[in-house]
Nucleic acid binder design. Structure first.
Lengths: 231, 231
DNA sequence: CGGGATATTGATTGATTTCAATGTGAGTGG
DNA sequence: CCACTCACATTGAAATCAATCAATATCCCG
């Protein structure tokens, strides 16, 4: 891996600032630039819960290293993953006092933890901070809307391709996607079964659209084919 | 359609005082309490576009009467409806300068229109207003997450029941749901076809879970049956 | 009282789920 | 270092459910 550590004080603007999932946002000021100043870095082991749905929202989190999933358990017992968080992403931010979903480390991870009350106090005093918190929530909203569009798509191929293109956009290396999450995680994100995800991967490989380099790596071989399949 | 009643391309900001209906949701302080003070009420005719995806986000809107749908057109040409807005609901609020989706009146509607820049100025001066804007976005986020959960559900019955329970919660009359939107609208919201929505309605009626009183009214006959079907 | 839009209902098809078996790979301990 | 093992992934066959294609039926709206 290249440079996993991204706790830069003033992050040098790489190609694109993927502070969140915001791929559309122009690189304005980092909405989460204050995080490293007032937070402590904490390690979470693979599959460990960081917070649970319904618990008091005492802290806000930023991924330094690793990967996090947030999810709800549905009435029928199935798990809907709301988002995957990669280094640089903020999660667990709520306007209310309760977490509306659970969060778990997908792999061993390093996370900056900030007291929510501290951020709120700051926001009350500084309009800039308030604006930043709002922007973070709006970026989450944008991601949720993108996911809604993906779930609205009917075919499994379309959903999986959407997922791959999203991960590609957020991934550092061009065309090479490292997947920290399992097929089941992907399935629970896309509203499919793990078998369908697996089959669709091999299907895409047979189309020469991607190449599977082990179960957890995907190489994009033909982006325009993928984009066509997405439509 | 009939009247191209898109008057108010550029609504003048007359200070119009107007009573507003509260959301049937969290009864905390009204995040949109300032709206009626600085906005003008504008009528939009059925099926008329209020703003389009990609257009500058100059205004923020609050429904007084009628119903609004927001949607994206997907790559494959299908339409994904993101939300239905009923009296009391705010829509069109963005942190950025661009609308990320389109909005149309479902039926003839009355909408309060507020200049976004005015709200932003206010937010810069008053932490309370900033907080309210943030809360509005967070409420939208919560709704999007609920919709993700609904779309993650696999069966058509589960999706339609989720929709009915959502509409029931937002509807004034107990057990009676007036649907301003068409079967196609519902289908585009739930990621189904209109035929499946229609069939599922009649299916639920045969189960004595609901009663269809004309195409645009649903009476909940057995809530616990519905909740069981939802699981 | 039309008449066009909207909704229901039917028959068929096809994709995804489900159930089931096999394959693979990373980590461990002998 | 290799064999073992367990979790994860792939592959197969069958069943199921929603999409599609198609034909009425109903509801408004003028």
């Amino acid at each position: 891996m290249s440079a996993p550590l991204k706790l830069a004080q003033r992050p040098e603007n790489k190609t694109v600032s993927h502070a969140f999932h915001g791929r559309h946002q122009a690189p304005t000021a980092q909405p989460d630039a204050d995080f490293h100043l007032i937070g402590a870095t904490v390690p979470y082991a693979r599959n460990v819960e960081i917070f649970g749905e319904g618990e008091p929202a005492e802290y806000v989190y930023k991924v330094i290293e690793g990967a996090i999933r947030t999810y709800n358990i549905l009435d029928d017992g199935r798990r809907q993953i709301g988002a995957f968080y990669l280094p640089g992403d903020v999660f667990g931010l709520e306007t209310g006092t309760i977490h509306r979903y659970s969060a778990e480390a997908i792999v061993n991870s390093q996370v900056i933890v900030v007291k929510r009350s501290k951020l709120l106090d700051l926001a009350n005093r500084e309009a800039r901070v308030a604006r930043n918190l709002w922007t973070l929530t709006a970026q989450e909203l944008q991601h949720s809307r993108d996911l809604i569009s993906t779930l609205g798509k009917k075919s499994a191929v379309q959903r999986v391709v959407s997922f791959l293109l999203e991960m590609d956009e957020r991934s550092a290396a061009r065309d090479l996607i490292r997947l920290p999450m399992s097929r089941q995680d992907i399935a629970d994100y896309l509203g499919l079964t793990l078998e369908t995800v697996s089959r669709t991967f091999t299907h895409l490989e047979h189309q020469d659209a991607i190449e599977l380099a082990g179960a957890r790596s995907v190489i994009l071989r033909n982006r325009s084919t993928l984009r066509n399949l997405n439509a």
